[in-house]
């Protein structure tokens, strides 16, 4: 489902003496449907960079990133947007929303974007928020005022609202209590069971051991200093 060939990435800082910082070279990996790959490596090794490259958030310097049959490295913005809407989900560590929008609508939005009816979208959003123990009295409020853990759970509910065939999870279990952590791991297992290809970053070793089928150390993709 996700296939990466010879991917490389460097940052050029034009305003700081045009410094070129190579951060990734010759990265190769494949994730099949129904499989979960965990990215490991020390902080700064390039785990999040790799995720952002796959999501099209960073522009690849070279190589191919195939998600389904779309090459994220070379596609037009509109093809990447369609990919993000229908195929590729991303649960980041931070919730970014329009202020004032109720939590329920934040969670239902990805479903509305793929053309689901409002009733169906809201039913699923309520189910997910319920499972993630967000109290019902908060559903009509904007998540911008929630605690860190609550925002994280709203973010997860939103990420799992649509059944994406491919998902990127950036520390989905960070800052969660044991009950909610368990729910999130269940959601990941359910996504795998329905055939989603998942790439995740898990600092929590137990969680990683439980949901990941394979691990890959991104340090091997770091360019060697010449």
């Amino acid at each position: 489902m996700i296939h990466i060939d010879n991917l490389s990435k460097s940052f050029t800082l034009h305003n700081q003496g045009s410094a070129v910082i190579p951060v990734m070279a010759d990265a190769n990996l494949t994730v099949a449907a129904g499989e979960c790959l965990a990215l490991t490596g020390a902080s700064g090794a390039g785990k999040s960079t790799l995720m952002r490259l796959i999501y099209g958030n960073y522009l690849a310097a070279g190589g191919r990133i195939l998600v389904g049959d779309v090459d994220v490295a070379t596609s037009e913005p509109r093809d990447i947007l369609q990919l993000r809407r229908e195929t590729l989900g991303y649960v980041s560590q931070f919730l970014r929303v329009v202020p004032r929008v109720p939590t329920l609508e934040v969670v239902a939005e990805p479903l509305l974007a793929v053309g689901k009816s409002p009733e169906e979208a809201l039913t699923r959003a309520k189910m997910l928020l319920g499972r993630l123990n967000i109290p019902e009295r908060l559903w009509s409020l904007s998540p911008t005022t929630f605690s860190g853990g609550e925002q994280q759970r709203v973010n997860i509910a939103r990420g799992f609202a649509h059944n994406y065939p491919a998902m990127l999870l950036d520390e989905p279990t960070a800052s969660l209590d044991p009950t909610n952590r368990e729910t999130v791991l269940h959601l990941i297992e359910e996504a795998k069971a329905r055939g989603a290809a998942i790439i995740g970053i898990f600092h929590d070793a137990d969680a990683r051991a439980r949901v990941a089928d394979r691990e890959i150390d991104v340090a091997q993709f770091t360019p060697k200093a010449a």
Binding site: T12, L59, L81
Partner: peptide, 11 residues
Amino acid sequence: GLTDQVLDDPQ
């Protein structure tokens, strides 16, 4: 380019 790509990884 894509909005978040231009803002997060400006070239």
